[in-house]
Each structure stands twice: as structure tokens, then as C-alpha cells.
Design a protein around this nucleic acid. Structure first.
Length: 385
RNA sequence: ACGAAUCAUAGCGCCCA
């Protein structure tokens, strides 16, 4: 079982989940009983693909074979629901785990805390943090990182710095991730000066800037409308032997799209593919949104087909951009069609999606439908901001 | 032998013009 699990794990990591599944079936056929580690490998693979049908299949197989979920399985499931926007479901699983008497560990607490933070529920995150400490568990850099990130995203930089001090008091090593998190927080506040300050603190500790740092600073510059500086920052990476990644290229593509320079955007798309940094859903979303905003809807839909042909799955951002684009040009019925496609694709419509469509409807004089949609949004448990 | 923290993409409003 031990070695089989390793092999299956390797296959799944390479994306050959089907081959792994074949091996699993072969295992069972030969009377080797897979254990929770074996199954978790599959849960991991399906969760990363956001394939919940696949996840459910594995879970029922586990049940059938009398293998129970362990704390790592729950961590994976919570991660999966969190990343697809189903935070209540994630919380429900966390409680289910505790109800079954499975001891939560630092990993699962950190995962839950992270997703609570990401959904803007800092209060619950800190409550959970207290619970973790009360239970005698020791929070580590990941746990603090999750909370610091939450505070940074909420713009609470002083509170984030307080946690940073708390880490130091507790003797937890301040690593790259922690610094990068704070730098990003300051950049999002438009305080690049503070980001530079942290960067020099990092250098004093012997931490050279990595690709994250460049990406963070460049995005900060973009937000301050310093596009040329942002481009220079990203292009300077190469001179300093830092390899650009998908995020770097996507940032550039987004920049060019917003300038309406689709030729350059396309060129970068080809360049990244040539360098083996594959475009992902976000990359295409940037392209699609750029085209939508310039009324190039035909091209936008073409890009959407192109992404799907590469096995990339459109997400809420893709749909919202398309819906918004159709609305701008008065093709509300096209927008509605897209809107209704979403649930079947397992996409959770959020406030942004609804408001794009609601504003489209009302600008088109279809206020009855707009109000109806508004009510539907409230019923879906969404709060307008 | 399994699992956790940092970067890129969407709407409305506000401000400015």
C-alpha cells in the first residue's frame, strides 16, 4: 500500500489522475487495501481541479471500503470549498470533523482560518485562532501568515504589524512569505514607500527579492497609474536572474489590455507559452475583460473558446466580464443567457456578477427584471455593498 | 507516505475631470 500510494501520488501530481485511478482499481482487484493516504491523494487531485463530482466519488468509495476520513482529508475538503467560494460548506465540514471526534491540528485550523480571512470574516478567524491556542496547539508561521494576510487585505496594517511583533516575541522566524504578505498589504494601500522599507529589512536578513516581490511592486505601481514604471519593474527581473512566472506575464498582459494594446498582449501570451509558463484562467480573464471593455465581444468569446480548448475552466471573473461586456453593448439577453449558464458549471454568482447584470438591466429600462434579480440576490444570501 | 500562509483578472457606487 505504502509504495503504491507513492506511485499514485506521483501520477496525480503529473496530472495523470486517470492512470492513478486505474492503478487504484488494480490494487483493489489484487486484494491490496488502499488506506486513507491513498484516497487522500485522489481527493487532493480532484480538489485542485475543483472537480467535486470526482471528490464525491472518492468519498463514497472510502465509505464503501470502510476507510474513514482523517484530518488531512478534511483539510483538503475545506480548502476545496473555500477556494470555490463555498465558505459555509467549509465551516460545516470543520464542525462535522469536530463532531466526529477527529482532533483538529494546526494544518486544519490554519486552513479554516485562512478561508475565513479570505471571505472577510476576520472575527471568526480570530475566534478560531484563540480556540487553537486554548486547545494547546502551537500556531506557526503559516497560521500567523494567514491572519496577517487577512488583516492586510482589510487594510488593517497596524494590527498586522502587531501580529508580526507577536511572532518575533514567540521566536517564530520571519520568512519571505510573511514579508511579501506585508509588502502586498502596503502596496494595496498605495504605500510603496513602506513596501520598499520592508524590502530593505528583508535584504538585511539575506533574503533577496523573489518573483513575488517584483509582481507585488509592479501591481502596486499599476494601481498608482504608474504603468511605465510597472513595466520597467517587471522587465528588470530578467537582468537580476529572477524568472518571470505566470503571474508576471498576466500582470503585463492586463496592463497592455487596459491600454488597448492587444497586439502586445497577444505577443506576451505567445512569449509566455514559449518559455513554458502556461497561461491560466486568470491570464485569459485579463484578455477577455480587456476585449469586452473595448466592445470586441466576438474576440472575447473566441478567447473563451480558446481557453476551454486548452482545458482551462472559465470562472466567475470570466462570466462577469462577459456579462458586463454584453450589457455595455445592450445585448442584455446574451448577458442573461451567460448568467443562467453559471450554476450548471458549478460557479457561484456573487455580488459583482449580480450588480453587473442589474445595472445592465436598469440602464436598458428593464427595471422590473432588475428588481426581481435584486430580490433573488438577497435570497441567495448576498449583501449589496 | 497524504493536507495549511504571500503576488495577477470582473461589477456598482464614491472622488476627480
Amino acid at each position: 500500500v505504502y509504495s503504491m500510494t507513492l506511485v499514485i501520488g506521483e501520477l496525480c501530481k503529473r496530472g495523470e489522475v486517470d492512470k492513478g485511478k486505474g492503478l487504484l482499481d488494480e490494487m483493489v482487484g489484487r486484494g491490496v487495501k488502499p488506506n486513507e493516504f491513498t484516497y487522500n491523494t485522489f481527493v487532493d487531485a480532484f480538489v485542485k481541479k475543483l472537480d467535486f463530482v470526482g471528490v464525491k466519488k472518492i468519498l463514497s468509495e472510502m465509505e464503501k471500503n470502510g476507510v474513514s476520513l482523517n484530518v488531512a482529508t478534511y483539510t483538503l475538503l475545506i480548502e476545496g470549498y473555500g477556494s470555490s467560494g463555498k465558505i459555509e460548506e467549509a465551516e460545516r465540514l470543520f464542525e462535522e470533523m469536530q463532531g466526529k471526534g477527529i482532533e483538529g491540528d494546526v494544518h486544519v485550523y490554519t486552513t479554516m482560518i485562512s478561508w475565513l480571512c479570505k471571505s472577510g470574516n476576520l472575527k471568526s478567524a480570530f475566534t478560531l485562532f484563540d480556540e487553537l491556542v486554548e486547545r494547546g496547539l502551537v500556531p506557526n508561521a503559516h497560521t500567523y501568515g494567514a491572519l496577517i494576510n487577512g488583516l492586510c487585505k482589510a487594510g488593517q496594517m497596524e494590527a498586522a504589524e502587531t501580529l508580526l511583533n507577536e511572532m518575533q516575541t514567540k521566536g517564530i522566524n520571519l520568512n519571505r512569505v510573511i514579508f511579501n504578505t506585508l509588502m502586498d498589504g502596503y502596496c494595496k494601500q498605495g504605500r510603496i514607500d513602506e513596501a520598499w522599507r520592508l524590502q530593505s529589512v528583508m535584504e538585511k536578513k539575506g533574503l533577496q527579492p523573489d518573483v513575488f516581490v517584483y509582481n507585488i511592486i509592479a501591481t502596486g505601481l499599476c494601481k498608482l497609474n504608474q504603468h511605465e514604471e510597472a513595466k520597467r519593474c517587471l522587465l528588470s527581473m530578467v537582468d537580476r536572474d529572477v524568472a518571470p512566472n505566470t503571474v508576471t506575464y498576466t500582470t503585463l498582459i492586463d496592463l497592455y489590455c487596459k491600454e488597448g494594446n492587444f497586439v502586445e498582449a497577444k505577443r506576451i501570451l505567445r512569449e509566455m507559452e514559449n518559455k513554458g509558463q502556461n497561461p491560466n484562467t486568470v491570464t485569459y480573464n485579463a484578455l477577455i475583460d480587456g476585449h469586452c471593455k473595448k466592445g470586441r465581444m466576438k474576440e472575447a468569446h473566441k478567447l473563451r473558446n480558446e481557453m476551454e480548448s486548452k482545458g482551462l475552466v472559465p470562472d466567475v471573473y470570466t462570466y462577469t466580464s462577459l456579462i458586463h461586456g454584453e450589457c455595455i453593448f445592450g445585448r442584455i439577453d446574451e448577458a442573461l443567457k451567460l448568467f443562467h449558464e453559471m450554476p450548471a458549471k458549478n460557479l457561484v454568482r456573487n455580488v459583482v456578477t449580480y450588480s453587473a447584470l442589474i445595472s445592465g438591466l436598469s440602464k436598458d429600462g428593464r427595471s422590473d427584471e432588475a428588481f426581481r434579480l435584486y430580490d433573488e440576490m438577497i435570497e441567495a444570501g448576498l449583501t449589496p455593498d
